[in-house]
Deep mutational scan, measured.
Amino acid sequence: KLPPGWEKRMFRSNGTVYYFNHITNASQFERPSG
């Protein structure tokens, strides 16, 4: 389970998975720990 605010997303163009935090508007490719 991801830390609060984080969700898994995917770029439609190339299928790359990334993680987005809707609380802080942060995004990263590494899976957030917590």
Rank of each mutant, 00 (worst) to 15 (best):
S33W: 11
K8W: 02
T24G: 02
F11V: 15
E7P: 01
V17N: 08
Q28E: 03
T24D: 07
N14T: 14
V17M: 07
M10D: 05
R12Y: 11
K8E: 11
G15N: 08
E7G: 07
Y19F: 06
F11M: 14
Y19N: 00
R12N: 14
N14M: 03
A26G: 06
K8G: 04
G5T: 00
A26V: 14
P4D: 10
G15T: 08
N25M: 11
Q28H: 04
P4M: 08
I23V: 10
P3V: 02
F11Q: 13
A26T: 14
P4A: 09
E30K: 03
S13L: 08
W6V: 01
M10R: 12
Y18S: 01
T16Q: 14
F29M: 10
W6S: 02
R12H: 14
Y19W: 10
A26F: 05
N25F: 07
N25I: 05
P4L: 07
A26Y: 04
F20P: 09
S33E: 11
F11D: 15
G34S: 11
Q28M: 03
R9V: 07
I23G: 04
P4R: 06
Y18I: 08
V17Q: 06
M10K: 10
G34I: 12
N21W: 04
E7Q: 09
E30G: 08
P4N: 07
I23M: 09
Y18W: 06
T24Q: 05
G5L: 02
W6H: 03
W6T: 04
S33P: 12
V17F: 13
F20V: 09
Y18G: 07
I23W: 04
H22Q: 12
T24L: 04
T16R: 12
R31L: 09
S13W: 08
F20W: 10
N21F: 06
R31I: 13
G34H: 11
N25E: 07
S13F: 09
S27G: 06
T24V: 02
F29H: 09
E30T: 07
G34C: 05
S33N: 11
S27K: 14
I23P: 02
F20S: 02
T24R: 03
Y19A: 00
H22S: 13
N21L: 11
T24S: 06
R12S: 14
P32M: 01
